[in-house]
Structures are given as C-alpha cells and as structure tokens.
Amino acid sequence: MLRRFPISQSVRLLSSSRIAFQQAKTGSEKVISSCPAGTVLNLQIKKSGKEPVALEDHEYPEWLWSVLDEDAQLKMLQKDPLKLRRKQLRTSNRQKIKQNNFLSEI
C-alpha cells in the first residue's frame, strides 16, 4: 500500500535529499541520510517479514554513500578495465536495440 505524503512534506523530503547529495558531491560535509534513524521504510517484500527500519548513518557501509556519485563510480570502474568494458558494451547494445526497435516500427 502506497503512503501518500502532503505536498509540502514530500517537497521537503526531496529538497533535503538533494541538498545531502550536493554536499556529498562537493565533499564539504559528510553525507547524511534523508531518513532519520528508526523510520519505517515501507520496503517489506515478504509477507512474513518485518518492515525494515532506517539505521544510524554510521551503521551503513561506507561504499553506500558513493553509489550515486558518478565520479566515484568512474574511479572504481577505471580500477577494473574488464568491468568498464562490460559496462560500455551493455550501453552500446542497449542503444543498438533501441535503434533497431525504432526502425522496425517505421
């Protein structure tokens, strides 16, 4: 079941997430999560499982905070040329498939 937030609250959540991401990108401050510790995340997958709850920021692994940073991901890929090449092949294959699908509709 989707939980609907009032517009003012959802805008506040988005703006705080954007600010946290920009601060992480500039490296001026340590990244903070947009969910305070103890917040129910509404990500329950199994019927018998419990709802996951947000943890303190220091309880998450360090790599999690650099997942959305494109520069950090590029540095990681440059360390392993095989992964970089696989990613390049995947993107080029997707582009070819999209182009072929578009041309087949004409």
Rank of each mutant, 00 (worst) to 15 (best):
Q9T: 09
E56L: 10
Q44N: 13
G38N: 05
Q88I: 14
E29T: 14
S66L: 02
R85K: 09
Q95I: 13
L43W: 01
E105K: 11
K87F: 04
L55F: 06
D80L: 04
V53A: 07
P36V: 11
Q88L: 07
L2F: 07
K83I: 03
S17C: 10
M76D: 06
S48P: 00
G49C: 10
P6S: 08
I97L: 02
Q9M: 04
V53S: 10
I97H: 00
T91D: 11
E56W: 09
P36L: 05
I97T: 11
E29W: 06
Q22L: 14
K87D: 02
T26L: 14
V11C: 08
L13Q: 08
V53H: 02
S17R: 10
C35N: 11
V11E: 15
L82M: 04
N100I: 04
D80R: 14
S17G: 05
E105L: 07
I97Y: 06
E59F: 15
V53Q: 10
P52Q: 01
V40S: 13
Q44D: 09
P6M: 01
A20E: 02
L89V: 14
V67N: 00
R85F: 12
K75Y: 02
R12L: 14
K47C: 01
N42L: 15
G27M: 05
Y60F: 13
T39N: 02
S104M: 12
C35A: 15
F102V: 00
S10F: 08
L84A: 11
L103P: 01
P61K: 05
L84I: 04
R85D: 11
S8E: 15
A24H: 10
K98S: 15
G27T: 10
A37Q: 10
K30W: 02
L82E: 15
L77R: 02
K79Q: 14
S28N: 12
A72E: 07
E29S: 12
R85Y: 07
K30L: 10
V53K: 07
E29G: 03
L43D: 11
Q23V: 00
A54H: 11
P6K: 04
A20G: 04
E56A: 13
L14N: 09
D71W: 09
R3M: 03
A24R: 14
L64F: 10
N42C: 14
D69H: 02
Q9R: 07
S92R: 08
Q78A: 03
S28L: 15
A72W: 00
D80A: 13
R18W: 07
L103R: 11
A24W: 06
S28I: 15
L55S: 07
L64S: 11
K50Q: 09
M1P: 14
D69I: 02
L68K: 01
R90P: 00
P81N: 01
I19A: 15
K79R: 13
L41W: 02
S48D: 04
